[in-house]
Amino acid sequence: MRGDLTDEEWAIIGSLLPPERGRWSRPAQDNRLFLNGMLYVLRVSCPWRDMHERYGKWNSVYVRFRRWAEQGVWDALLETLVELGLTVTGRSVPP
């Protein structure tokens, strides 16, 4: 789908995300699908409940988003991308 991570982007980001393990967790290979769902919500500025069903159950994606936030995954991911020179720094995001 338009806006989803390319294979090149996923090759960089995929290994930076934690594996999802546990009795109720979905397998880590769903990380790409879930991340694309998270990016979709951010890109179109819709409520989680309106996330496109292509990405799975909205609540499952939201729960993983919150868990990653609580675990510091987003901060670590951004820090790594900055260190790799893969982000634009010093510019504000356009309105």
Rank of each mutant, 00 (worst) to 15 (best):
W24Y: 13
L42R: 03
W24N: 11
S45Y: 09
D75E: 15
A28M: 01
R43M: 11
Y55H: 11
N59T: 13
E53I: 13
G37F: 05
Y40G: 00
Y40V: 06
Y40K: 00
E53T: 13
V44E: 15
V63E: 15
Y55C: 12
Q29T: 08
D30E: 05
R64K: 01
G72Q: 08
G56Q: 07
S25H: 06
Q29S: 07
A76M: 09
P27T: 07
V61Y: 01
F65R: 08
S45N: 14
R43D: 09
V41C: 09
K57N: 13
H52D: 15
S60K: 12
H52A: 14
F34V: 03
V61I: 13
G56I: 06
D30A: 03
E53Y: 09
R43T: 13
N36T: 00
V61S: 02
N31S: 07
N36E: 02
H52L: 10
M38V: 08
R26W: 04
P27N: 05
R23V: 06
E70F: 08
Q71T: 08
V73I: 07
R66H: 14
W48Y: 15
R67E: 10
S60A: 15
A28F: 05
W48S: 06
A69T: 04
Y55S: 12
G56H: 04
V73H: 04
V44T: 15
V73F: 00
W48E: 08
P47F: 11
L42Q: 04
D30W: 00
L42H: 04
Q71Y: 07
N36H: 01
V44Y: 14
K57I: 12
M38N: 04
D30H: 04
Y62K: 14
G72V: 06
W68F: 06
W24K: 10
L42T: 07
R66Q: 15
V61Q: 01
P47E: 14
L42F: 10
A69G: 09
L77A: 01
R43W: 06
R23N: 00
N36M: 04
R49F: 13
V41W: 00
G37N: 01
F65S: 10
V44L: 14
Q71K: 12
L77P: 06
W24R: 10
F65M: 09
R66I: 15
F34M: 01
C46E: 15
G37Q: 00
R32Y: 01
A28H: 05
S25L: 02
R54L: 15
E70C: 06
Y55K: 09
A28P: 01
H52V: 13
A28L: 01
P27F: 05
D75Y: 12
A28G: 00
Q71V: 11
